[in-house]
């Protein structure tokens, strides 16, 4: 039987990996995937609390469903903007996004 701490640690590790990836990776697609990791870490947290929390309740699972839908929409828009960006600049490298600075 897994304990609450293990689930929460998993979520925390996923969140940190996601944040690290989003801040350091060069390819925008990987950045978007990393953001997805962060959102999923939050989902694991919500599910853990909904099942094993101090006050278990169904709200957390409902919240997760909403969060998953929103994350999917966000990523879809992200990829659409990436396509527009690629058409304009012919690159998907984060370091080339330097038309505007300061």
């Amino acid at each position: 039987m897994l304990s609450v701490e293990q689930f929460l640690t998993l979520a925390a590790i996923l969140f940190c990996i996601g944040l690290y990836g989003a801040l350091t990776k060069r390819n925008i697609i990987i950045v978007l995937v990393s953001i997805e990791l962060m959102l999923n870490a939050a989902n694991i947290n919500l599910l853990t609390f909904a099942r094993f929390g101090l006050v278990p309740a169904i709200n957390g699972q409902v919240f997760t469903l909403f969060a998953m839908t929103i994350a999917a929409a966000e990523l879809a828009v992200g990829l659409a903007i990436l396509i527009a960006l690629y058409r304009n600049r012919n690159t998907s490298d984060v370091r080339d996004q330097d038309l505007m600075k300061w």
Binding site: N45, L46, F49, G53, L54, P56, N59, G60
Partner: peptide, 10 residues
Amino acid sequence: SFIYGITGQT
């Protein structure tokens, strides 16, 4: 998720 986890309320 942490606020929810402690309070059990949304």
